[in-house]
Design a protein around this nucleic acid. Structure first.
Lengths: 243, 243
DNA sequence: AGATCTATTTATAGCCTCTAAACAAACATA
DNA sequence: TATGTTTGTTTAGAGGCTATAAATAGATCT
């Protein structure tokens, strides 16, 4: 078969795959999690049910592909915010990326909801080489980068390793090693502490776990950022209304 | 109809309701969220499908009833841990309740998972008088109590109201008012900050959002408790192995 | 032109939710 | 005690879902 022909067919296939994901996403956003069924997506595209199985092996794989998209889109939004501040101090870039994370999450609650609580099988039986998992790793890198940058230019305060619980110390060592030495265990601890507070807050907001007390979490998030800046020994700068 | 007879029938009905919930819970724990279907529960009990609709109006209501159970069980576990320390300082009781919360969550991951991310309709269309919502409120009270107790006996540090973002200040005022004045807005702020950090961490653990870095979050949780104790101006006491 | 590969359809099995209608057993009252 | 009502249950069935198998229409290669 001519190479040209093969390429064209491949392009067509990719286009169909993309249309499937776009349709599924629209259903998710407009009608909620339960509306994203293989049948409904196919129907919506003018295909008949089983045709879709030539593109995704089943419901689960489709969901996985969507979540991977979401991870990448979120990571890209954060990277864009960071890069829009090229040349500015690392702390400013970090804050911008963190704000971009919440902006994306609040602007895409259904998608963000699937990132940390998508339907599907128990997490135990999720292969580590799935697109979903890969995208998760990419996301981790984007989150990590600003911290590494900060650490390399103006090291932030870290705890004494010996002061930490032995089990925690070991886990930090292992994680740090997996990072290829970009952050020593102590710095990894500070990074993870910050991450837990920020991302945890966002999870709670999007899962409506704070509706009992708050109607608007923007100021709560800003306050969290202020505390993180302080914990990192960095100057806090409020968001600029324009960008 | 004799009152006695009515009572007996009502007892039978309650027993069936309880058996349904117990069966559904077993399916949840043993086979995951998706296994909890009306049909499967009925089959498991030796009933035939539609019979179950005489007890719960449908899948959604059944899930709601289960979540209410879980809320209450968690609240009760916390209350029990607190009451086992009657007479000890409020801070000790608070720490005990917080540890009981994680112990329950880790011991019942499927149930805890449903508390904050159960299947069902978008949260928008959940009535505020559902059992689920009621149980959520009860849970809030149990969480709140130790903080109120602490506040009344040895007031913890609170921020200056004027130093907070105006929107946040207003939300805190509203929340405080809804609490019937048991905590002033500043104290509510401290309470909520602590709650967000603790519960947020637990959510992330149970949703496996921290698997990328940690294998055991017990020391992370303890460290969080230590920080909270410090933020509340209280002495931190490590858990006693025995209890 | 015939063989092959790809995309798609129909047909089907088996599960699900939920409603309707039939039926049986328990009960209350005349 | 006989009868009608209430309650719990079952069967039947409509409609949707996942997923597979088999049939079919088109495109492509030799």
């Amino acid at each position: 078969m001519a190479a040209r022909t093969t390429q064209r067919k491949e392009r067509m296939r990719q286009a169909t795959l993309a249309e499937i994901r776009a349709t599924a996403r629209r259903l998710l956003v407009e009608h909620g999690s339960a509306a994203v069924t293989v049948n409904a997506v196919a129907r919506e595209m003018g295909l008949s049910g089983p045709a879709l199985y030539h593109y995704y092996a089943g419901h689960e794989e489709l969901v996985g592909a969507l979540v991977a998209d979401f991870y990448r889109e979120l990571a890209q939004a954060m990277a864009a915010a960071r890069d829009a501040r090229a040349g500015e101090p690392p702390a400013v870039r970090l804050l911008a990326a963190c704000r971009a994370m919440r902006a994306w999450a609040v602007g895409h609650p259904a998608e963000f909801g699937w990132i940390f609580a998508s339907p599907g099988p128990p997490r135990a039986e999720r292969s580590a080489d799935s697109p979903r998992h890969q995208a998760g790793l990419e996301f981790e890198q984007v989150v990590l980068e600003p911290f590494v940058e900060l650490w390399e230019t103006s090291p932030f305060p870290v705890p004494e390793l010996d002061a930490l619980d032995p089990s925690l110390r070991e886990q930090l060592r292992a994680y740090s090693a997996g990072l290829g030495g970009r952050l020593p265990p102590e710095a990894a601890h500070t990074f993870l502490t910050c991450w837990i507070r920020l991302y945890g807050l966002l999870c709670m907001e999007v899962l409506h776990q704070l509706d009992f007390a708050f109607t608007d979490l923007e100021p709560v998030y800003e306050e969290c950022l202020r505390e993180l800046a302080a914990a990192l020994g960095q100057e806090y700068r409020p968001p600029e209304p324009g960008r």
